[in-house]
Amino acid sequence: MEAYLGIDVGSVTTKFALLNKYSELITDLYMLTQGKPIEMVQQGLHQIKQQLPKDVDICGVATTGSARYLAGVIVGADLVKNEITSHAVATLQYAPQAQTIIEIGGQDSKIIIIRDGVVIDFGMNTVCAAGTGSFLDHQALRLNMSIEEFSQRALTSKTPVRIAGRCTVFAESDMIHKQQMGHRTEDILYGLCQALVRNYLNNVGLGKEIKPPIVFQGGVAFNQAIVKALQEELGSEIIVPPHHEVMGAIGTALLVHEESLNNSNGSKFKGFGISEITYHTSSFICNACPNQCEIAQLSIDSQILARWGGRCDLWERSPSSQNKEIE
């Protein structure tokens, strides 16, 4: 059986999706990155292998997410694609009529505007992570509850309080103030959800024409309270697709499938065996010119697999043939 693997290594979570040639999901995986992208990719591959039906032939592998290049080198990706394209492609598979995609992840939030099945505009959060999952995570931690509990309690709110959502610091002092005033926890929680939605629409959604059908995905879409707050704010139904948390991974898998149709060279996938290999990462300052670039390198034993981070391509061109000693 032909299968296509998509891997999405994000700032907070790592996602895997395995599709068959009819673009149906065979298996998926959602795990926390915990700041260890390489180990998580290896662990994920190990787990996928165990869930794998027999006679599966991996015909293409693609990576996306903020660690897509690193992950791509490790697994031997046939395609490395940015998150926007990946998400849009996956969403159109499940909701071909979609005109707006709202995606809120750990540190990124995006809006993608689609007309007639083509992305015509997108936006991403700029210099601040206030409208993202990390913001909610942080506040849940402050209130000493899990993010799952957060969502359940927030939904029971009847009279949400108004909380400043511009910035985590303001939100926090506002929250403390409201707690000291004696407001109920669930009202504060739902107030936070509304603040996040307001922040999102005022920043990422600024100047964008948000038309239904609206699809909401990313890790934060697990949070029913946010879905409700979005629905109230936009006055329109919000679709949360199945597998919304692995959409990026599904999207790249679809893209590599599409690509493999034009390319008969076979996959560069290095096999599931790579979950056993020990990778080393290290970095050094290049002294070849006054720029002092921080070069990161990935190696197995003493063999260098890849280097990146320089302003020129001195180290990236042929990593294996060059030694650090050139300095």
Binding site: S66, T85, V118, V119, I120, F122
Partner: peptide, 19 residues
């Protein structure tokens, strides 16, 4: 972050043009 945005932007324009 800059590269992701550039890639997505260029990708979008390519796909639009293709369409």
């Amino acid at each position: 972050g800059v590269i992701s945005r550039l890639e997505a932007f260029i990708d979008m324009l390519h796909r639009k043009k293709k369409r």
